[in-house]
Design a protein around this nucleic acid. Structure first.
Lengths: 126, 126, 126, 126
DNA sequence: GTGGTCTAGACCACG
DNA sequence: GTGGTCTAGACCACG
């Protein structure tokens, strides 16, 4: 799994890492049950602090994307169903993007097409 | 235009304000050429700091959603076309949401349906 | 609010702090809407690191006991209803204590009496 | 005696094992004088480390729940009376749970009812 | 001034 | 070896 952090970004490192791991899982590059590198390993691979990776793993665990097994370490969780909180966040995220797109004269058809492509591109990597 | 800020949210106030104004424009509630409340007025209406509103307006101007003129004041800009930077951000935003959705076993059809609804709901408010 | 940390305890500092704040809220010493000391202030008062307090506050926030208001800082949340997760934890906590008590020949009546006293003692402090 | 370890839990395995054995004793499933599986057997049954089981047994012995004899092996101890240390821990445990419950608007009556149920459910399993 | 993020470094608990 | 906890110290974002 290739991680690519933009240090100049105003998106915090731990969130960039979170997103890339989620994309990795969604695309099938990271399979359920597959182990993730230890916080120390991941940190040294990327060249960031161990605590930053730890924060990402903790969040991913709380969101149900990974599990921290006491024997086997960190691994990709079985895919679960969205809870209410997740659905709310997803909808508000889509609304924010839709609003921006509409202001920029992107049509409903084009927006759907972009959303569809984003989803399908994940599959192609798997 | 009714603004609703959640002060306990972890989304900064200036970004919440930005998004709601964009939704207002997208939904047609705020028409191109229509004036926005002055920084001072908006701040006191919502009960937030002047600096915060100022920051939001500055960002919206840079993004091309509003214009700030010394004489005419702040008003909604004519709808423009997306530039390269905007398109890139939109795509990466959609990819992030699509990845999360896919991990939570949401199908392509359901994701498109959610995206479509988010877009259409904007129209209905207009 | 008087905080008392036992540094030799095998209960982590951030959890000791969490529990004492919850007891403070339950006893009425800390009222909903009342501000909590800033992480820096609390840390220096107790003589621990700012990050440790931060961890406690973050947990309390996620559990719904406090809110972090972007304008007013940290404050005690309005008392909310238990969610499913909370109820499960409460039941399993009570089961663990009940089992221990039963092994030590404590009767149902005595156990209820202890539980009742623990609850009432909170009220008396308020 | 059926042991059920959740490896993804943030409760250490040796404590999960401890609690389940205590519940087993409290419910009468494990009778005083009854032998416990050897460390080796228990470890292989559950699929955990020898050291982990050892740690649990050592703690249970110190708490007076089991006896460890070189010749007779490990067996459930005769039920003893609580010592001062035990009582203090029990009370502080109940206080912590009561405080949480009170914050979540659970009434004294409901808390007692939950405590009572937890205790009675032990009996029913026996 | 407040919390949020990040780093560096250390020790410990768990298995 | 792994994650968990804690400290010290620094800079930044927000309001």
């Amino acid at each position: 799994m290739l991680i690519n952090i933009t240090f100049e970004s105003d998106v915090p490192i731990y969130l960039q890492l979170r997103e890339q791991i989620i994309v990795g899982i969604a695309s099938g590059e990271l399979q359920p049950g597959e182990p993730l590198p230890s916080v120390r390993r991941m940190a040294s691979d990327i060249g960031i602090n161990l605590h930053t990776v730890n924060k990402t793993y903790t969040i991913l665990k709380e969101e149900g994307f990974i599990t921290i097994d006491r024997r086997k370490g960190t691994e990709v969780a079985e895919h679960s169903k969205p809870n209410e909180n997740f659905s709310r966040n997803l909808e508000s995220g889509l609304t924010a993007l839709a609003a921006q797109a509409k202001c920029k004269q992107i049509s409903l058809e084009d927006f759907i097409s972009l959303a569809s492509d984003a989803f399908k591109n994940l599959t192609q990597k798997g």
